[in-house]
Amino acid sequence: MHAAMTHLLEIQNLAFSWPGAEFPVFEHLDLTVREGAFILVRGASGTGKSTLLRLCCRLNRPQVGVILFRGRNIVETAPAVLRSMISYVAQIPQMTDMTVGENLLLPFSFAANRNKIAPSEEALEQMLAEFYLEGVSLGQSALKLSTGQKQRLAIMRAILQQPDLMLLDEPTSALDPESAAMVFSIMERLNTERKMTILGVTHSDYRPETVVALAYRLENRRLTLTDA
């Protein structure tokens, strides 16, 4: 019973194919994510790393297999409610044509997040500094930020919802080395300081410096543990 409670996410025998494709992207995939874990899935482009994360928050639908979140099949939870608990940050950060502050508070305008308390302006400004966005003001247009700044803002926006699990889809793939280092540092601090459970995918050789991570490799349609 205790073991089951500490499993935040359990993926069992998962398989996914694109419509009309001859072979599945992956099959017989199992993965357990414990509360507070920092898990990295590596693999070459096209091996299905992003798809794996998207399946965990129902942005895609698997043909076979079950995903349990806190012991419950994710298809039994309303999609919006599930996604308010499992936050997915896409590879290419997306902002709406609004200010930085409005973009950060966007999740609180959705019904599934209405019971969550939106942070104050002061709290947002403090957080901007934590996310290496000191020069960015809440009133400026979010669309005018650099890709690196947008990515940090996207992670910050996801954090504000206080999710139980963060899914980070190649968060540094579009960034220069300096911006990528900032994002990696943020990811590690989220895990150590905020006890955030993180499941990230990357094709880089990034090795966390301050956290104990579990590393997997996704290749040949299978997921294997490479580094415990």
Binding site: C57, L59, A78, P79, A80, V81, R83, S84, S87, Y88, V89, A90, I92, Q94, T96, L106, P107, S109, F110, A111, A112, N113, A154, R157, A158, Q161
Partner: peptide, 16 residues
């Protein structure tokens, strides 16, 4: 599509 999915990922229902 990317913007719609971004909102979905942040807890929006399909209407929002």
């Amino acid at each position: 599509r990317d913007v719609v999915e971004m909102k979905l990922a942040l807890g929006a229902n399909y209407r929002e």
